[in-house]
Amino acid sequence: MADEFLLKVYVAAAVLMMVGMALLLVRLIAGPALYDRALAVNSFGTKVVLFLCLFSLMNGRQDGVDIAILYALMNFIATVAILKFFRYRGLTGPMTSLPGSSKFDRLREARRQKEAS
């Protein structure tokens, strides 16, 4: 009895999650800036994780939650990788700040000028 009621609750929450995913897809396609799209992808990933958890408890299976753990971690790494790629146009740059503005860059530049003079 309570299980049937909870099944309806799970289905309702999953439907709400899918509506939210559809709204985020609109922002993902129409987003004017790159960062709007990165934000939409990140938020979409969070909703996918929640949907997977709901789905696996709906079916009483454990596999979906394992995938959700992996998805949560990969979503974060993917977001940071996208941002880093579009800032440095590569994935091997420094992570501290913009090139030229960090302390190490300024020290290196000062040393180069000293050697040149």
């Binding site: 309702a12 999650m17 709204l23 929640l50």
Partner: peptide
């Protein structure tokens, strides 16, 4: 779920 939906609506 309502919080998540409100977040998606806010993003849009």
């Amino acid at each position: 779920a309502i919080f998540v939906l409100a977040g998606a609506l806010g993003v849009l």
